[in-house]
Simulated scan of single mutants.
Amino acid sequence: MNNQLTIRVVQGASLSEAARNHIIALCNKAYNEDLAPLFHTFVGASHVLGYYNSLLVSHALWVNRYLQVGNAPLLHTAYIEAVATDPVYHRRGFATAIMKYLVNEIQDYELAALSPFDVAFYERLGWELWRGPLYIRTNNGLLSSPADEQVMILRLPKTPPLNLSAPISAEWREGELW
């Protein structure tokens, strides 16, 4: 019996309905809520799947987004979503392994970002909390994000110098804005 985590990347478009449902069930269990509607908004997602003894136990995905710091050029961003590990398998380093693998896969992006469930977890992995105001870009201008919204970024090889206290915005999208 293999006690290692086996990790693979799968494009969302190539997932079978059964595999997609299995991923959603894992995330629902991890977050203790129904995330199925949210998964419909993850267009073009790349899924990172972690298997322990052939059982799916950990997951994360990234989608393409375009973040903008102040009025600087848009940054092609790998936006991380649905980082989840089956609660039965917590504290085994699986989420850390999934995130490290994911970061290795997104090195050609200009930036990585996410809305953290646990800031301390991501800080351990080198992510930085954005301190400036958060906005969503709409056709009618900038929409302020709720005060309790948090975003973390990870600098990648192509990341330009950033002022973490500057305003940052993301394009509007269906579902969760950040």
Rank of each mutant, 00 (worst) to 15 (best):
L35I: 14
L35W: 12
A36D: 14
P37L: 15
P37N: 13
H40W: 12
H40C: 14
H40K: 15
F42L: 15
F42H: 15
V43G: 07
G44V: 15
A45Y: 02
S46T: 13
S46V: 11
H47D: 11
V48K: 07
V48Q: 07
V48I: 15
G50Y: 12
G50L: 13
Y51S: 09
Y51L: 14
Y52W: 14
N53Y: 09
N53K: 15
L55H: 13
L56T: 08
V57T: 11
V57K: 07
H59E: 05
A60R: 11
L61S: 10
V63I: 15
N64C: 12
N64V: 14
R65F: 07
Y66S: 08
L67N: 02
V69N: 03
V69C: 13
G70C: 05
A72V: 00
L74K: 05
L75M: 07
H76K: 05
H76L: 03
A78R: 02
Y79Q: 06
Y79L: 06
I80C: 02
I80Y: 01
I80G: 00
A82C: 05
V83D: 00
T85G: 09
P87E: 07
P87L: 10
V88Y: 12
H90I: 07
R91S: 13
R91W: 09
R91A: 10
R92H: 10
F94A: 02
F94W: 03
A95I: 00
A95G: 02
A95Y: 00
T96Q: 07
T96R: 10
T96W: 02
A97S: 12
A97T: 03
I98T: 04
I98M: 08
M99Y: 00
M99D: 01
K100Y: 02
K100S: 06
Y101T: 08
L102D: 04
L102G: 04
V103K: 09
V103D: 02
E105W: 01
E105K: 13
E105V: 01
E105S: 09
I106F: 05
Q107P: 00
Q107V: 08
D108H: 06
Y109V: 05
Y109E: 03
E110F: 10
L111P: 02
A112D: 01
A113T: 03
A113Q: 05
A113G: 08
L114W: 02
S115N: 11
S115W: 08
D118S: 12
V119I: 12
V119A: 04
V119C: 03
V119M: 04
A120I: 09
A120H: 14
A120T: 10
F121G: 02
F121Q: 05
Y122R: 01
E123K: 14
E123Q: 14
R124N: 11
L125V: 11
L125I: 11
G126V: 14
E128N: 13
E128W: 12
R131F: 03
P133K: 15
P133E: 11
P133D: 13
Y135E: 04
I136Q: 13
R137C: 06
R137E: 10
R137S: 10
N140V: 08
N140H: 14
L142P: 02
L143E: 14
L143V: 10
S144K: 15
S144D: 15
S145M: 15
S145F: 03
A147C: 08
D148E: 13
